[in-house]
């Protein structure tokens, strides 16, 4: 297992370096000049030059990359050119919002997907299966931003049950915090629920065909036992994998959802960075999200190897 872990890490390393290179250079390709964006409509050339020097923008690209990556390794992602806030601090400040959003989305998704997926597999071919299959297809087809809009319209405007957006910190008011996150988590989790549901159904179908499940069923065990104890446990591996992978994708999906629900998370931060042409901030968020994504995938790989004895640790 240790060897397998090290091997996976070794493969991840060049990818991480690649991500850093892309994060750095992709941002240089973006048109528009941070300095002019920062100074507004009126400024003197000396001022602009001074700023360029402050942010090292007057050096060659390779030098800039070397300087930058050196700082990144030491945990310094630079300063936002707009607010002067350190980029890492800005990211860490918003991270809890996105983490909570993603976690709650995955939570909702599992709550909806597992029972329905199991139900569909057990009642294969029946009307229940057909409805669940169709619901799953619908779920991956509905644009999250449309779902979000419909949820606001229904639950916030017509019913007035839940707030339409904004964020309250858990430490300030846990109840309000949860109430503000329900609709965004539902909007973001809808598609994930559909994906997990489809996976649960097909994994369960695989397992239900196995002899030991058939045997358990034939022996007259109550459904709760043979479905949950025998079948579901063994169907869990692909479900866990796909859930992990989806959690990574949610980092991207949160850009749109955070925008609709005015949530101050990583997604909103990266959109602001794009809109303001804030080089350091855009670099930082792109790098951060990329690295998170790789780490999540690495974890999923390891979890998979740990759950599935058939994988050789070679």
């Amino acid at each position: 297992m240790l060897k397998y872990t090290l091997n996976r890490l070794l493969i991840a390393l060049p990818v991480l370096v690649g991500i850093s290179i892309i994060s750095f250079f992709i941002v240089r390709l973006v048109p528009g000049d941070t300095v002019t964006a920062m100074l507004g409509a009126h400024y003197s050339e000396e001022e602009a030059q001074a700023l360029r020097e402050t942010y090292g923008l007057d050096q060659s690209l390779v030098t800039q990359y070397a300087l930058w990556i050196g700082n990144v390794v030491r945990g310094d992602l630079g300063q936002s050119a707009f607010t002067g806030q350190p980029v890492l601090a800005a990211i860490l400040e918003r991270l809890p919002v996105t983490v909570q959003l993603v976690a709650m989305s995955v939570g909702f998704a599992l709550l909806m997907a597992l029972p329905l997926g199991i139900l569909a597999a057990v009642r294969r071919g029946g009307p229940g299966d057909f409805s669940v299959t169709f619901l799953g297809l619908l779920g991956i087809s509905v644009p999250g931003f449309w779902l979000g809009t419909l949820l606001i319209l229904g639950f916030s405007l017509y019913l007035g049950w839940l707030p339409s957006g904004g964020f309250i910190m858990w430490s300030v008011d846990p109840v309000e915090n949860l109430r503000h996150m329900i609709l965004p988590a539902l909007a973001l989790g809808g598609a994930v629920a559909a994906v997990i549901m489809r996976m649960t159904r097909s994994a369960m179908l695989d397992v239900l065909g196995e002899d030991y499940v058939k045997l358990a069923r034939a022996k007259g065990m109550p459904p709760r036992v043979w479905i949950l104890k025998h079948a579901f446990r063994n169907a869990l591996i692909p479900v866990v994998t796909i859930t992990g992978i989806q959690a990574g994708y949610l980092l991207g999906g949160s850009v749109v959802i955070e925008q609709i629900f005015s949530l101050p998370g990583i997604g909103m931060l990266s959109l602001q960075a794009i809109n303001n042409r804030d080089y350091a901030l855009l670099q930082g968020t792109v790098l951060f999200v990329g690295v998170c994504f790789v780490l999540i995938n690495l974890l999923v790989d390891l979890l998979y190897a740990w759950l599935d004895p058939r994988i050789k640790y070679g």
């Binding site: 991500i19 941002v27 991207g252 999906g253 850009v255 997604g267 959109l271 999200v289 990329g290 790789v294």
Partner: peptide, 11 residues
């Protein structure tokens, strides 16, 4: 592959 699809498309 290491960037979420929408974020990559945005950039």
């Amino acid at each position: 592959f290491s960037f979420p699809d929408i974020l990559l498309a945005l950039v």
